[in-house]
Structures are given as structure tokens and as C-alpha cells.
């Protein structure tokens, strides 16, 4: 182990030596994967979604329910703010954390005055963030096939905001709903090209565990509740 990379050359040497004899492909797929530019054909085998927006929305709503995410369809930002206000009084929140963004910049002024706001942009105190009652973020996309919310470190307030406070509120527009992970990755690739954010995370329901007797418990380490406010 003399170089900074460790045993790089030795390992690559062993790999190349080992690969001199080819291994048979035991399960030839209909189309060859790996290095292929499109992965759209995965769609033929995975759970079906349906092409129309209504079908996508119906599936997303159904999965949200089984996942115990709370999906609330809002007519406008004012209604979204009102939903947050009622969650806030129900759970007696004192402080919420959020980040700057196209939607949130418009939403933040509409939130109740007695609710303190911690904005994470430009750095934050981790103890203060931990003490917040809820985190509000935007998201990149919603995925119909899996009921997931896709957040990134670029557009959702960094890495921690969406996972440290006990209640995660996502604010999204219907146009952000995509069919499946394939479409999600394609859309991220189109948006970021070679400059991906340092984190892309597909959040599927509130934090959960089945480690004790495989019985479902929500809020293992991340949020106990996930609320999705969906704007037109």
C-alpha cells in the first residue's frame, strides 16, 4: 500500500486477470442492458402505471395511503398555507425549518405569524434544526409508480432538512408527477446534465422500521409524518 490510492493497481490487475475467461450469461434479457442509453423498456416489466395524468395521480394517491404519507390536494398557495397552519396548531408547533425556493418564497409569508421560521440556506445550527417541529421543502419530482418524493441537495434545502425534523412537509406541483424511476432519472439528467447535486434521494413514505418482529413502526430516525401538499 504505497500510493495514496491504496492497492489500486494490484486490485485492477487481479480483476483483469480474473476476467480473462468469460462467464456465460445465464439469463439473456430481451434487450441488452448496461451502457444502453435508454432504460424505458424496464417499464414493460415493472408494476403498470397508466399513461394519463389521472391514472398517475390515482396510483400516487393510492400508494401514498398504503405508505401512510398524507397527500393533500390544494387549490392554491393560500390553501397550502392554511393546511400547514392547521397541522401546526394540531401538533402545537413552535418552529418550522424551510429553505429558499420558487414556491417556498411565496409560501413563507403566508404562514402563521406565531410560527418561527428557520431558513437553512447559508448554514444552520444543527441543534436548532433538530429542535424544529417540522421541515418544509420543495422537491424535484413525485413518482407515481412507487409513491415517492424525489428530493435533492440542490432544490430541497440540502441533505438534512428533509429528514431531521419529525414532520416533513413537501410542497409540489402536479406537473412534477412522473411515471416511474426511469422517467425521474431521465428528467434529472436533462435538468442537471453532468452537474448532479451531491445527493438525490427518493423518499417513499415516512421513516419506517420493521426491525422488531417485522412489525411496522413509523418514525424510526427520520420523520414520523410525511405530508405532501399538491398544488395544481
Amino acid at each position: 500500500m504505497n500510493s495514496q490510492n491504496g492497492d489500486r493497481e494490484a486490485i485492477l490487475g487481479r480483476v483483469r486477470e480474473a476476467l480473462r475467461v468469460p462467464a456465460p450469461l445465464k439469463h439473456p434479457a430481451e434487450r441488452s442492458a448496461g451502457g444502453e442509453p435508454t432504460t424505458a423498456h424496464f417499464r414493460e416489466w415493472l408494476p403498470p402505471v397508466g399513461p394519463s395524468l389521472d391514472e398517475k395521480f390515482a396510483l400516487f394517491a393510492k400508494l401514498s395511503e398504503t405508505l401512510r404519507s398524507e397527500l393533500i390536494v390544494c387549490a392554491d398557495l393560500a390553501q397550502a398555507a392554511a393546511e400547514i397552519a392547521s397541522l401546526s396548531s394540531a401538533e402545537s408547533w413552535k418552529t418550522i425549518a424551510l429553505h429558499r425556493g420558487g414556491l417556498l418564497d411565496k409560501l413563507a409569508p403566508l404562514l402563521p405569524n406565531n410560527l418561527a421560521q428557520l431558513c437553512v440556506d447559508g448554514g444552520y445550527d444543527k441543534n436548532a434544526l433538530e429542535a424544529c417541529d417540522a421541515g418544509i421543502t420543495e422537491c424535484e419530482l413525485l413518482v407515481a409508480q412507487t409513491g415517492s418524493v424525489c428530493v435533492t441537495s440542490d432544490n430541497s434545502g440540502g441533505r438534512v432538512l428533509s429528514v431531521l425534523p419529525p414532520h416533513h412537509i413537501v410542497i409540489a406541483r402536479q406537473s412534477q408527477l412522473v411515471t416511474d424511476l426511469t422517467e425521474a432519472y431521465e428528467s434529472l439528467a436533462a435538468k442537471y446534465r453532468a452537474h448532479y447535486p451531491s445527493m438525490i434521494s427518493f423518499i417513499t413514505g415516512p421513516s419506517r422500521t420493521g426491525d422488531i418482529e417485522r412489525i411496522l413502526v413509523l418514525g424510526a430516525h427520520g420523520p414520523k409524518r410525511l405530508t405532501i401538499l399538491l398544488l395544481p
Binding site: H99, S153, G158, R159, L181, M199, F202, I203, G205, G222
Partner: peptide, 20 residues
Amino acid sequence: HLTGYNSMYGGPRQPGETDG
């Protein structure tokens, strides 16, 4: 259908990012 969190990490905190 999908595990709770599937996260892809490409590098440490990038310029302009909030944390990481």
C-alpha cells in the same frame, strides 16, 4: 415497492449547497 429512502451520493458537499 420501494424502500423508504434510496439515496445517491456523488461527492461531498458541492459549491453552493447548504450542507453535507
